[in-house]
Each structure stands twice: as C-alpha cells, then as structure tokens.
Design a protein around this nucleic acid. Structure first.
Lengths: 182, 182
DNA sequence: GAGTCTAGACAACACTTGTTGACCAGACCG
DNA sequence: CGGTCTGGTCAACAAGTGTTGTCTAGACTC
C-alpha cells in the first residue's frame, strides 16, 4: 500500500539532499531542487511548507552506530572510523549537514543533536562519568568531522588520496585514544 | 605617510572579515559589510571591484608558523596546536575561510593553498619524502580544522568547554603522531 | 454521470542580491 | 580663480530568491 504522492515527495527529498550536500544551505535553491526532481518549485513548498522545513526533513539522519558491547575493546577506534567512513560514503545527508552546518544555525543545531543523541550514548557505555563521556565524544567529533571536512568538502589532495586502510591506520589510534586513552 | 583612502579600505576589510567569519560567503552581504563600515555599498565595489575580489582580499592570511628547527622535537605537536589555538583566536580570518570554504569553491581553494604553501614546507623540514610530508600535513589539517569547526563554527558544547590546556593535552599527541609517529 | 478532491502547472508577488552610473562636495594645484 | 582629482552618496538596474494564489486535468466517490 503506497501512499500516493509519497513517490514525488521522496524524489524531492533525494534531490534536496544532493543539492544541500553539493552547495550548502543558501546556494541550494528550491528551484534547482525542483528541477532535479522534475517538478514545479511550488510543489516543494506545497509538500514541505518552506525551505527550512524541507531542510529539516532532508536532514533527518541516523548514524547507525554499531553496538560497542560486541566489539573487541582494542579495535574500537578503528571500527568506529571504518563505520563512519562507509556511512559517509553511502549517505550524502551527512555531507549536506556538514556543509550547511558551517553557515546555517539550524543545521549546526541538528549536528549538535546528532552527536549528543547518537554518539554520546555510545561513548557513555564505555565511560561511566557522563561529563567525561561528553568530552570524549566531542574529541571524536573533532577528528571525524575534520577528516570529512578536509576530504569531502575542502578536498585537500593528500587527504583525498588516502586509501581506506590508511585512514583506519592513522585515525583509528586517535579515536581509540579519545575514547579510552590516557 | 598614510595613503589616503586606505583608512576606509581597511575598515571595509575588517568589516568584511567579521561578516564572512560570522555568516559565511553567501550570507555575508555587501550591504551588511558596508553598513558595518559606515559606508555606502557602492564604495565597497569601487575599492575592491566585486564581492569575489573583496573576499580574496579579506582572505589573505598568514599562519605565521614557528620555525620547527628551534623547537624541541618531542613538543612539536603541542607547540603547533598551541600556535594554531592562539592564531585562531586572535585573527578571525581563519574562521571566515573555514565557514566560506565549506560552500564556496574559491575559499576552499584558498584554504588548500594555505595548507600547501604554509603547512607543507614546515612538515617537509621534518619529513624528507615530499609525498609523505604532504600526507602528514593533510592529517594535521584534519585534526586542526576539525577542532576549529567543532569549537568555533558548530559550537559543540563539550568542545567549547575544553580549556586551552586540555586541548593541548588531547590534540598535542595526535598532531605529534601525525607529524613524526609510526 | 455529478461532485469532490488531489497532483500539478503557471504566472506573479515582494524582496534581496551584486553591481552600475549619475551626481556632489571638497581638497589640491596651476 | 578655474580645473581636476578623490572620496563619497543616491537612486536605479537586472537577476534571482522564497513564496503564494489561481487555474487545469484527471481520478475517485456517491
């Protein structure tokens, strides 16, 4: 049972994520998104109310972090980096959030929310003290988001050139230390 | 001997950096910059030709990295992190570049340039092989820019809450390893 | 078959953007 | 004094923005 209209609504969401990821919030125009979805700009407003609400709908994102209980404790850093790596490549929503978050406050708030709600609890299961867990989660964020920024947004050549294995080898120990070290 | 006109030109540049740092490239309007500098928008164009050229002029930035030859080898990471930390706080140009670079290609190119021209050579003096030096410089960039992104742009609470000493303690070893480790 | 409802198209609105050109005041130089 | 140059204001332009209202075609219900 497919709800009618949801097909174009989904098409709009896909186009919106693409545009937001490629251009950021301000430069991604409703007209361009509508054109990508082969539809009239008015329909975008009809379905989502406004550009802000469209972004909010498009920015709904799940990190799908693995259960840290089942992972070997010494490999946590590398595993997490690997998870982020694939998650980043298979879903451009994160890039949209990152690009938009640099200039748009709602997007930044959404990113804060994601890290608080989805990364925080995972780290909290490793570190008892909630204050320290939050700090460690924040440190992980600096490395993960920084890597994504340099590779996918700024496209720094040496960072783009890294193989997945090299990324694991370099960032893995860093994240491992931020999670459990010292 | 002060060249006349340079005073307002400087005022425009200051206002431009502020706006670009606060709002990013697209949302920082020439009108707002002109208003901050208490001047007519037309003058901004008169002095700089276009918004793009204004940004290019405002984004002229020197990292002023210390001479790594004079620093103790074991403290390199912490020293570099400390230098970036103060440099970031005393000059908002870097934040302007970061915010704009997330969505604007010219700004991203400028950031790539800065890291290639200013960070690259420093690392090259520590690492003989130029390819490996570039890779290590890129890794440093992921951590430094990621930290700045989370603290100054996204304002992740746990990252904002870190004291300077804590930042040195956590990021120092990471940068140290990226520079000389493994 | 008449009536209703929905997806969609089209044009338009009000506004903001970067940018341009015409005009003006004053300083400076002969 | 007359002329020129500099720093500046003002109003306007063309283009692009998000958003709204009006209309149409078709499907579905009674």
């Amino acid at each position: 049972m497919r709800t009618p209209g949801s097909v174009t609504k989904q098409a709009i969401l896909v186009a919106a994520r693409e545009r937001f990821a490629a251009d950021g919030y301000e430069r991604a125009t409703i007209r361009a998104i509508a054109a990508d979805a082969s539809i009239d700009p008015a329909m975008v407003i009809r379905y989502f109310g406004s550009k802000e609400k469209l972004f909010a709908a498009a920015a709904d994102f799940q990190l799908l972090l693995p259960d840290v209980g089942t992972l070997p404790r010494e490999e946590l850093g590398a595993r997490l980096v690997g998870h982020f790596l694939t998650r980043w490549q298979e879903d451009e929503t994160l890039l949209a959030l990152l690009r938009a978050g640099a200039t748009n406050d709602a997007a930044a708030a959404r990113l804060r929310e994601i890290f608080a709600d989805q990364v925080g609890p995972v780290v909290a299961r490793l570190v008892p003290d909630p204050r320290e867990a939050a700090r460690r989660a924040g440190l992980v964020a600096t490395q993960i988001l920084g890597f994504a920024l340099c590779r996918y947004a700024l496209k720094l050549p040496p960072v783009v050139a890294l193989s997945d294995a090299e990324v694991l080898g370099w960032l893995g120990p860093t994240v491992q230390r931020y999670l459990l070290g010292d």
